[in-house]
Design a protein around this nucleic acid. Structure first.
Lengths: 343, 343
DNA sequence: ATATAAAATGTCATCGATGTCATTTTTGGC
DNA sequence: GCCAAAAATGACATCGATGACATTTTATAT
């Protein structure tokens, strides 16, 4: 690596002058500047950003640990963070954190050090991995948790109201006349799964209806494949539901696929509702009624929080939770309940 | 920010000892170490990674500019790069580079400097944006181009053989007895679109068949919505094709949707083939026959190339192109051509 | 030509860490 | 208790850049 000194030597000027050519070209005589520029070119010089940052007290990047970048949630949140970072002029360093490998501490350490990360964002389910949070605290890193199952005294959280959203969906289906509604839950490790499920129950309670039997809850894991199995189970029920609310859009898409396979029309024979407003929600036919997750708003909030940390040594001790509003999007996959023999 | 000196003062030792506690704890007496650790804790110390990197000659992150992170291609490649980086122990800084904003040079500059990026990856269509490439060269940054339309003297390229893959698809359809095959092209800005289209023609030529008429080529843009329009056009043809090859899976999914809407069964009435092996290819019903893009292999190659640059000042002047093998995946959306009235 | 202000350039210290090598302390065998 | 060897610690230089301030050169007015 060539340095500013090599350039200064070749150009016959002081290092400071080279620095000036780089940072305040107008304060250098044209002739000198040209000589310096030529020297830089011939030496193939490029400034050492580390030294610059050290001198200038440079900022660190926002760090994002991704457990499963193929997951719709993570990739969409990732994307929202990119946008929020761009808006705020921040940079983001991303790293895969797959499962818990034996040397995860060393990996995180290198991520913080080599990646120059001080503030990070933890998505589900990483945001619930206590050893990681402890380790981060040890290392003096700060973090924002996204939709954690449990709030943490040391890290603020940005969330949406999964329970309310879920209840809203069921009420939407009630209003269309549905009485038997199946629910495919999400992955058991995600708090959202539990919240969404309890939103379902809450809606029945609020409407003064008896809670649905356990046969109407099929377990899923937010993924397409498991969604197929779950849908098969629900639709094979002797008294099959007239509507299915899947814990996310991917699962809902699986339900739609199974329904088509069985010759059921949507929403004529079966209403299907998802959650997330993922691209797939508009890509399947018919387009899915769903809840739009406020990804971008949440990401912006994250950046705000981190911006507020500037200068502070670490996150303050008090828990703070930022709730972000969502939105029900009614598309074509939900419609009036059709009376079926037996209903 | 507290420094190693603050800690050393409080602990009553030299800065070097504090450094030792951090880097080679065994070389410090237990009692001293504990005192230092306590001082670090009470001062809430965390080491300045910039200074460390400066001293140790730290490496830079791999930079990725994303034009449209929602695009399947970019997000999947992104993901593959994450994996490859993890395998190689590298870090990646990602940034949105949406369209060409007036201050793009300043943005790139900040990305390189603040993000401490020296090597970057340019995906389509950014890899064909000449001003950016020129600017990067000015700044002494190095880059690998992914599937560029035109090769560049200054930057190596990693590609797959779109034309051959496309030809393979058509030959697959030929082998199933299809004679009228529609093609929905990709976005005109992507070289892949042109290559895939010419692969189609090549297959006809190789088979000694007359080239398909222009009515069998509908223009798409790799996106679902445009795919719907294109599918409508092709399927409304007086002599509609018995198979449609869409330039990517998303478009193919749109074709499937339109076909279902029109009551056509797949592959009975219409074979549909995509390209990419995106998640959506397995998420629609029936699962799409498609080409698997060698994302991970390409990403690994990128990391290899960049690793090879270590120490070198900039990319050598000679163009190098790395071709990566693909794979045809036959699923359920392609089947024997059915004789239709008129055929 | 000369004084003087303004512009251009240079010197030195500094950012926060670690490597080198010198110095001090501890350890263990006698 | 003494001495050599080993262990622990410290002083100082260094990484590559820039800020503060000093110095030199140039431009302008007299």
């Amino acid at each position: 690596m060539t340095t500013i000194y090599d350039v200064s030597r070749l150009a016959g000027v002081s290092a400071k002058t080279v620095s000036r050519v780089l940072n305040e070209p107008d304060r250098v005589k044209t002739k000198t500047r040209e000589a310096v520029l030529e020297a830089m070119k011939s030496l193939d010089y490029s400034p050492n950003s580390m030294a610059r940052q050290l001198r200038l007290g440079g900022g660190s990047s926002l760090g994002l640990l991704l457990e499963d970048p193929a997951s719709g949630y993570q990739s969409r949140f990732h994307q929202a963070l990119l946008t929020a970072c761009m808006e705020a002029g921040k940079h983001m360093t991303v790293e895969l954190f797959e499962g818990v490998m034996p040397d995860w501490q060393a990996r995180v350490d290198r991520f913080l050090t080599e990646g120059r990360v001080r503030d990070l964002v933890l998505l589900p389910t990483l945001c619930d991995f206590a050893p990681l949070k402890d380790y981060l605290r040890t290392k003096g890193a700060r973090a924002v948790l996204i939709a954690p199952s449990v709030y943490d005294t040391h890290f603020p959280a940005v969330v949406m109201d999964d329970r309310a959203a879920s209840r809203q969906i069921i009420e939407h289906l009630f209003s269309l006349g549905h009485k038997r509604i199946g629910h495919i839950t999400g992955h058991a490790d995600h708090s959202a799964s539990i919240l969404r499920r309890s939103g379902v129950v809450e809606a029945y309670d609020a409407a003064g209806l008896p809670r649905p039997g356990p046969e109407l809850f099929a377990s899923g894991d937010f993924m397409f494949k498991k969604g197929i199995e779950a849908a098969e189970i629900l639709l094979s029920l002797p008294d099959a539901p007239t509507a299915i609310f899947a814990a996310n859009d991917e699962t809902a898409a699986a339900v739609a696929m199974v329904a088509h396979k069985r010759g059921l029309s949507i929403p004529g024979d079966l209403s299907v509702v998802g959650f997330d407003d993922a691209p797939i929600a508009s890509a399947v036919w018919p387009a899915l009624t769903t809840i739009r997750q406020p990804y971008l708003e949440m990401a912006r909030r994250v950046v705000q929080i981190i911006d507020g940390w500037e200068g502070q040594t670490r996150s303050s001790g008090n828990t703070s939770v930022f709730m972000t509003p969502h939105e029900l999007i009614v598309r074509d996959s939900s419609g009036p309940a059709r009376n079926r023999p037996g209903n």
